[in-house]
Design a protein around this nucleic acid. Structure first.
Length: 556
RNA sequence: GCUGGAGUAGCUCAGUCGGUAGAGCGCAUCACUCGUAAUGAUGAGGUCGGGGGUUCGAUUCCCCCCUCCAGCUCCA
């Protein structure tokens, strides 16, 4: 089809494969049908894959003759003296292989998308077209995979955010989310829970300003390391910056008073709004925004308190994520090349993190050299509906800020010492965490989080007055309740409530009115039958108090 | 930021080979008074993302910009 196109690299990935191609004019989705029919022919012919070997020189000669600089570069970078390749029909390609004995084993495949990708992931190098596709041994498995993709689309938080009236974006504020009344209910419930959990764990809460003088950011190192992502302004002819992180402000609070080792560990939480100038192309719903709220905390302590403190935070994250039924993956990142501090400090800090993880028996992935320049860190990753992984909680040890801000405390010996500092977040960014929850629950929040917890549905307008009584009684009981007094049919009102993922629908007709009851319908369990209004109130209040997930509803 | 794609009613989308647009849902009004996922009728609602150009005439063709989508790069 495109004899001049140059193949670059094409590995298998989870659920499929991609191939980077240098083609001019660029490939588009309109080319997919033609490519797929070529693939179809190849599959039907059932060519065997034949393994072959070249010496490095032979391989280089082959691709230099073909005028393919990408393969030449790949071969040059290979350490092996012999290069394996695979051949089917007249097509030869470098491959460690083997994947399959013959082309006929591919029973079902589909090209999914095409997008640009930098050669070898380097933005200074040419951009190629990357074609993504997927293949399965049977049509049935392909169909199942495509069904999962469609389900993921249904759960997409951007779509549900609109449908459920939770938040919106506007061209006037790219990357700056607007939270609607219903979205704020969820966020506020999350924060109420958060504050209670922090109170239990002896945290204080502080708040620092959004805008602070440039001098402060020069002192903290942000001016040197993070300027490109910051917003600036002027006040009375002095230079100021909008904070991209909360730590410098937190350091000033620490320095405002004298500290004793007796007060350690000193845990100061801050629900801090930060602004970061992210590149336009990386913005992604609530997952990647330009203003977000970190459920931050800075913990000041002696170095020998680090390990216990880290264990405490790991338990904290686990306890919080369990409430939502969220699964997570843990990563430990160690000292990067460009970093500050002594080897001794890094060893102490890294082993404290490692020991904490080992003590908890937590499996983790090691990211050698991926830590922050000021210290190692433990990250907690949660996957979205398309299996993309997002960092949420993180625990970071910091040796830089205590130095830069000359922090100290009075030790048992009466002398001044340098404290250790941990930065940590539990939700991470509340916006991102909300997005994770929307996709995790598919919009069907557990009752304690649901913007509307129950809708009263009169069967006809003869029961409107009773429906209002029921609504008022539930409102008095502290529930988020609405009465649907529209002149739609009962079936229609049920559908409307189901569509909005309201946990409980309370159907009231003459029978219920006469007995002071409600007919309870749960959005997943269906019709639960009639019960006295008070019985329903205690049931739902218990469910809310327990923060029960939907699949636990039956047990109540 | 880069490559490619898209932007038409509140939402989801159709349409115009250049003569200023249509559906479903939603909304409003009226009728219906209904027992667990859609009762019917009528009506309102759009400077076709923004600016410039070509043209007698641009939502449609061309250029620039904005925003969104997929991916890449980035992500203390």
């Amino acid at each position: 089809m495109r004899p001049e196109a140059k193949l670059a690299i094409g590995p298998p990935i989870e659920d499929g494969f991609y191939y980077d191609i240098d083609a001019d004019p660029p490939l588009t989705e309109e080319d997919f049908a033609a490519i797929e029919s070529e693939m179809e022919k190849t599959v039907r012919a059932d060519y065997p894959f034949e393994r072959g070997e070249w010496s490095k020189d032979e391989a280089l000669a082959h691709y230099e003759r073909a005028g393919n600089p990408y393969k030449v570069e790949l071969i040059r970078d290979l350490d092996d003296g012999t290069i394996t390749y695979y051949r089917h029909d007249d097509f030869v390609d470098l491959c460690r292989g083997p994947h399959l004995p013959s082309t006929g084993k591919i029973k079902a495949f589909k090209l999914l998308s095409v997008a640009g990708a930098y050669w070898r992931g380097d933005e200074r190098r040419p951009m190629l077209q990357r074609i993504y596709g997927t293949a399965f041994p049977s049509q049935k498995e392909l169909d199942e995979h495509l069904r999962l993709l469609a389900e993921a689309e249904r759960r997409d938080h951007r779509k549900l955010g609109k449908q459920l009236d939770l938040f919106s974006f506007h061209p006037e504020g790219p990357g700056f989310p607007f939270f609607h009344a219903k979205g704020m209910i969820v966020l506020n419930q999350l924060m109420e829970f958060w504050r209670e959990e922090h109170r239990k764990r002896q945290y204080g809460e502080v708040r620092t300003p959004i805008i602070l003088e440039r001098k402060l950011w020069e002192q903290s190192g942000h001016w040197d390391h993070y300027k490109e992502n910051m917003y600036f302004t002027q006040i009375d002819e002095r230079d100021f910056a909008v904070k991209p992180m909360n730590c410098p402000g937190g350091m000033l609070i620490y320095k405002a008073t004298l500290h004793s080792y007796r007060d350690f560990p000193l845990r100061l939480a801050e629900v801090g709004t930060v602004h970061r100038h992210e590149k336009s192309g990386v913005l992604h719903g609530l997952f990647r925004v330009r203003v977000f709220t970190q459920d931050d905390a800075h913990i000041f302590m002696t170095p020998d308190q680090i390990q216990d403190e880290v264990i405490g935070i790991i338990d904290f994250v686990d306890a919080v994520y369990k409430v939502f039924g969220l699964e997570y993956a843990v990563e430990l990142s160690t000292r990067p090349e460009k970093s500050i501090g002594t080897d001794e400090m890094w060893d102490l800090a890294t082993s404290a993190l490692r020991n904490a993880l080992d003590t908890k028996g937590i499996a983790y992935k090691l990211n050698e050299g991926d830590g922050a320049f000021y210290g190692p860190k433990i990250d907690f990753h949660v996957r979205d509906c398309l299996k993309r992984s997002w960092q949420c909680a993180t625990i970071q040890l910091d040796f830089a800020m205590p130095e830069k801000f000359d922090l100290d405390y009075v030790g048992p010996d009466g002398n001044l010492h340098r404290p250790a500092v941990i930065h940590r977040v539990i939700y991470g960014a509340i916006e991102r965490f909300l997005a994770v929850l929307i996709e995790h629950f598919g919009g069907a929040f557990p009752t304690w989080l649901a913007p509307v917890q129950c809708v009263v549905i009169p069967i006809s307008d003869g029961q409107n007055a009773y429906a209002c009584q029921v609504r008022d009684r539930l409102f008095e009981a502290g529930l988020r309740v609405e009465a649907d007094l529209s002149d739609d049919t009962m079936k229609y009102k049920i559908r409307a409530a189901q569509t909005q993922q309201v946990p409980y629908m309370l159907v009231v007709g003459d029978r219920e009115r006469e007995s002071g009851a409600v007919s309870v319908r749960h959005r997943r369990k269906g019709d639960l039958g009639a019960m006295p209004l008070d019985a329903f109130v205690s049931r739902i209040q218990e469910e809310i108090a327990l923060k029960a997930l939907d699949d636990a509803v039956e047990a109540l």
